[in-house]
Design a protein around this nucleic acid. Structure first.
Lengths: 208, 208
DNA sequence: TAGATTGTTAATCGATTAACAATC
DNA sequence: TAGATTGTTAATCGATTAACAATC
């Protein structure tokens, strides 16, 4: 049942989970149509996506809200309290370390690393900045599951190489760079300037 | 020629542009294979995508680097110096205001808004924080093209409604919420906790 | 039973890519 | 001319969604 869920479906599961958390407060069951409305997708899409997970759905009634929410949490691995290290304690790294959505989702920021020794020892949202030199030791000692790259584009590749060598298999990359990694490593790219440029396209004078 | 470019193609243009800026320093021409390697996509994809733009390609030789770079800049609308307002001067809003990739891409942050009057007047990267109450006036006076939502999820919908009413047609949403807007408005969602949750999926014990 | 909604199939849609003719 | 690489077609692949049988 696992491992063959399409990537596009996996990417929508967090959206469904958010919708269910919202609905769970007031309803014991909810329909694919309600979930779809909150998630901004097609109801058939919701049913198809959920069907991969053997969901607690009852024909003619809907999905049992709380059990479906819990199923999604389990499937996404959010019951495991994953440990996150952030490389780069610049403005972005600091903002990420303080981002409430991370802690809410069961993620724990266990390290914030920077090459600037002047920043080492500084406290940001109850995480102490460590030296980038200690990256390997920290990953091992802290049992880091996920690495976040909030460094410059030039530093990004070497940092990700060190993360991967030390055993980190999941990377969230905020640096404006395309990282080259082993096929087994999962990289997700969040590229702020790319996003703005895509919006800029729709602003072009010739458009519409 | 414009307006019928597939969304998936548009989303890759910034990646090609970045590759070309890199290559332009040392090469007068470059092949689809070189661009593909740097952008992390298939060479046929590159040729197909560029073919929508009537590119400066020469069979047997490659694309003329500088003209192609400039064409991409024009197509993306980066020659227009677009004006950006950021709603929310929390950690994320501040980090965005200071993000070098924005200024580099020809985007100008012209406003940073917050409901907290204590923050009003504060200076962040040469932008003064304004009161959220003045949103409509600022959008008009400053000629804002793109709105960035860096508020809480609860405030996001009302802020985007005000942006849209005031004439902003392009929105970059960092709030963990699905915004409901008119079809003509372009919204791009950057959801940090969703990205982490997708990575978490690949960390699940049952996976692989 | 009538009404509702899931689960699933099959059709549609769109995006990716292999292949190759055009041509520098 | 031989070699290279674009531009484009057609095949493939995968994702979305309409439709409906199953069933509460």
């Amino acid at each position: 049942m696992r491992g063959n869920i399409p990537a596009a479906t996996v990417a929508r599961l967090p959206l469904y989970l958010r919708s269910l958390v919202e609905v769970a407060a007031s309803q014991r069951t909810c329909s694919s149509e309600e979930i779809a409305l909150l998630a901004g997708v097609n109801p058939a899409q919701v049913r198809k996506d959920l069907s991969y997970l053997d969901p607690p759905g009852v024909r003619g009634v809907g999905y049992k809200t709380a059990p479906l929410r819990d199923l999604l949490r389990r499937e996404l691995g959010l019951t495991r309290n994953l440990r996150v290290a952030i490389a780069g304690a610049g403005n972005l790294g600091r903002a990420l370390a303080s981002y409430p959505g991370f802690a809410d989702g069961g993620f724990e920021i266990v390290a914030l690393l920077d090459t600037d020794e002047a920043k080492v020892g500084e406290m940001i949202n109850s995480v102490v900045v460590s030296s980038m030199r200690d990256l390997e030791r920290i990953i091992r000692d802290e049992g880091v599951d996920i690495g976040v790259i909030a460094t410059s584009a030039t530093a990004a590749q070497s940092v990700v190489d060190r993360f991967v060598s030390a055993g980190v298999q999941s990377i969230l990359n905020f640096a404006p760079a395309v990282l080259k990694v082993d096929d087994r490593v999962h990289v997700r790219r969040v590229d702020l300037s790319t996003e703005l440029q895509i919006l800029a396209y729709h602003q072009s004078p010739t458009f519409e």
